[in-house]
């Protein structure tokens, strides 16, 4: 180690060594790249007291797929999502996370709610850094958070308080926070529900973009059947705690709003949900 005229007591690690240290971790990381987690649900049930909300859900979602869940209010969509990300335990059946070869994987799941749930006393960039969890070096966390913010096109708001942002911008911050740790599974519970129509369309494209870029498995709950059809590879209709329809959306991306083929699928789904099929 070079001895200069002044040596700080903390100078036992040089910057170069520190960078090399990070770099070696990077290599290990890229070998064990973040894996999208496929889902395997078998007979999943959930009851609250006497109220049986989920009555045996069987579902296979290949890793990296974009699934939308639609259904009437109160049919158990949010309940299912909370089980997927481990916020609640199922009262019956089991949930496994698997890769394409069927091997168990760690899902590193994240969830975005309808409300952004940002900490009002943290700046935007610090809110995103929350997504990295505790014990991350501050400078490193900032850098990652800024990268994620750029991913949702909010770099210029990094130092603002959340209270200064619009509803759509706050939701983008929440999305960046969920994505900054590169999840294998992202659950979205009506994330665009509180936004106006135009902001919604922009956010839909953003969600599609980040999903295609990062390759996580996405499970989106929405009230808006058109949104489900526009975004997802596959739409699942939940009715009284069971899957009543499971429909592939065989359209290439980017999808156009107002595509007649998508409109037809949308009509079919609405008929099922409203019980006219």
């Amino acid at each position: 180690m070079p001895i200069g005229p002044y040596q700080s007591p903390l100078a036992f690690i040089s910057d170069a060594e520190l960078d090399a240290h990070h770099a070696s971790q990077l290599v290990e990381y890229q070998e064990a790249s973040p894996q999208p987690a496929g889902l395997k649900l078998r007979g999943v049930e959930k009851r609250f007291g006497d109220n049986q909300v989920l009555r045996g859900i069987d579902l296979d979602v290949p890793a990296g797929q974009f699934v939308a869940i639609v259904g009437k209010s109160g049919c158990g969509k949010s309940t299912l999502l909370r089980l997927l990300v481990g916020l609640d335990e199922p009262t019956g059946g089991r949930i496994d996370f698997v890769d394409d070869a069927g091997r168990a994987v760690e899902p590193n799941s994240r969830i975005v709610f309808q409300e952004p749930r940002l900490l009002p006393w943290f700046s935007v960039v610090d809110n995103v850094a929350v997504g990295l969890g505790d014990g991350v070096p501050k400078a490193f966390g900032r850098r990652e958070a800024e990268r994620a913010l750029a991913g949702v096109q909010l770099s210029e708001k990094a130092k603002d308080w959340p209270s200064k942002l619009s509803g759509g911008q706050r939701q983008r911050v929440a999305l960046a926070r969920a994505l900054v740790s590169r999840p294998g599974l992202l659950a979205l519970d009506e994330p665009l529900g509180a936004l106006d129509a135009l902001t919604r369309l922009g956010m839909q494209d953003l969600v599609t973009d980040v999903w295609r870029e990062l390759g996580f498995t996405a499970v989106l709950v929405t009230h808006d059947v058109a949104e489900a059809v526009h975004l997802a590879d596959r739409v699942i209709v939940l009715d009284e705690g069971r899957i009543s329809l499971d429909l592939e959306i065989p359209r290439d991306r980017p999808r156009r709003h107002g595509d007649p083929a998508l409109a037809e699928i949308e009509g079919k789904l609405l008929d099922t949900i409203l019980g006219k099929a």
């Binding site: 971790q25 990381y29 790249s33 991350v136 990268r147 991913g151 740790s181 870029e213 990062l214």
Partner: peptide, 14 residues
Amino acid sequence: TVDTFSEGRDIRRI
């Protein structure tokens, strides 16, 4: 728009 995500780092490892 999303290239910013592509340089991954393993936070958990650190």
